[in-house]
Design a protein around this nucleic acid. Structure first.
Lengths: 185, 185
DNA sequence: ATCGCTTTTTGCCATATGGCAAAAGTTACG
DNA sequence: CGTAACTTTTGCCATATGGCAAAAAGCGAT
C-alpha cells in the first residue's frame, strides 16, 4: 500500500478496496508473469526481487531486453492494455515478492476509485521515465562501455543477475563478459 | 488537416481553429526542430521528408537514435511535456515540409477543442506503437542483420539517408556499412 | 564432507568490425 | 563545363568478440 501512497493520497476505504483486489504473490526464479503468445493478464509491482523481459531470436537464442527491479511497475503494457498476445516473456530472475492485480480487478479499481487513474498515470510516467534513463545498450558503444553503463543504470544488480542473462542484455557472449569483468578488475 | 481527420472527426469550426494555430514550415536539410540543452518548444507532423533524433556521445561522435518519416509525430515528448531541457537533437535529414504547433497553441487547442485530446491520444498511441515496432537495433544481432531489419522497419528510407547517419544508427562505421552493402549485392 | 548440477572462467583459433588514409564517385554552383 | 565540397568505396592491418569445448568454481541436497 505504501507503494501507492507515494503517488497520491487514498482514504482508508479506498486503501481497503485496493488491498482486497490485490494479491501478494511469490515467484520462484524462472517463473513467468506473462508469456509470449498469451495475452498479459496481470499487472504487478515488485516488492522484492528482480524480473526481466526477454524473447527468443530467430537463432533460438534467449535475449534479455531489460531488467525490472524493486518498486517498479511490471507489465507488458501493450499486451495488457490492448488485450493482444504478448511478444515477450516476463520472467523472474531471482525469487520475487510481487503484488499483482488481474485485468478485471484492475479495471474495477480504475472505474471505482476516484483519483486512481491519476495515481496510475504518475506511476506509469515514472516507469516511462525510468525506461528512458535505462535505455537499451547502445549498439555504437563497445562491450566494456555497455557493461560500465549497465552498472550505472542498474546499481546493485550486477551481483544478483546470472552472467548469461546480463550477457544477452549487453549483446555479447557469456565468455566475453567474463573476460571483460576480468579485464576491469 | 487530413492528418488529424484520420484519427477522429472535427467540425468545420474546429478544423478552422486548428489551421489557424498550425504553421506550415519548411526545414532545410540540417535544420533543427529542437536541440539538446533547450526546452523543446514545438510539436510537428512530417508531411514530406525525413528527420532524425541524435546526440553526441562522450567521444564526440554523432549518434542517430532513430529516424522519423512522413505522417509521423515529431516531438521530444519528455522535454515538450515536462518543459525540461532536451537531451537530444531533432534534425532534418532531408529537406522537409512540416506542420508545427507552438507549446502555447498546442495547449490552447487541447483545452479548447472537445475531443482533441482523444485524437492526440490516438496519435500518440500510434507513435508509441511504431516506436515499439521500430525498436533500436539489437546489440545481440550482427551488423548485417541489423542492416536488413532496418530495411524492413523503414522501407524506402535506405536510399534517402546519408550512409554516415545510417551507420551511426546501426552502430557501425560508414566503411563497414559500405562493405556490408557490397556483400549483399 | 560428498555428489550432482549450474554458473563462471579459460584456452585456442576464426572472423567481423574498426581505424586510418586514399581513391572514386556525386552534387552543387559559378 | 569545371572546380570545390561532400559522400561513398576500397585497401591494409589491428583488435575485439565469437565459437566451441574443457576446466574450475559455486551451491544445494543428502
Amino acid at each position: 500500500m505504501n507503494f501507492f501512497l507515494q503517488f497520491g493520497s487514498l482514504n482508508p476505504q479506498q486503501q481497503e478496496l485496493i488491498t482486497q483486489k490485490a494479491q501478494l504473490t511469490h515467484f520462484k526464479k524462472g517463473d513467468y508473469l506473462s508469456e509470449a503468445g498469451k495475452v498479459a493478464n496481470t499487472v504487478g509491482f515488485i516488492l522484492e526481487g528482480i524480473m526481466r523481459v526477454c524473447f527468443y531470436n530467430n537463432k533460438g537464442e534467449e535475449i534479455t531486453r531489460y531488467f525490472i527491479d524493486e518498486n517498479n511497475l511490471l507489465v507488458d503494457l501493450v499486451s495488457f492494455e490492448n488485450r493482444v498476445p504478448a511478444s515477450e516473456y516476463v520472467e523472474a530472475v531471482t525469487d520475487c515478492t510481487i503484488i499483482t492485480f488481474s485485468y478485471a480487478n484492475w479495471q474495477y479499481l480504475m472505474q471505482t476509485i476516484v483519483g486512481f487513474e491519476i495515481i496510475m498515470f504518475k506511476i506509469t510516467q515514472r516507469a516511462l521515465q525510468q525506461k528512458i534513463e535505462r535505455r537499451t545498450p547502445l549498439v555504437s558503444e563497445d562491450a566494456t562501455t555497455r557493461y560500465l553503463s549497465f552498472m550505472e543504470k542498474y546499481p546493485g544488480l550486477i551481483n544478483r543477475i546470472p552472467l548469461s542473462q546480463l550477457a544477452s542484455y549487453l549483446g555479447i557472449t557469456q565468455s566475453s563478459l567474463s573476460r571483460i569483468r576480468k579485464g576491469l578488475s
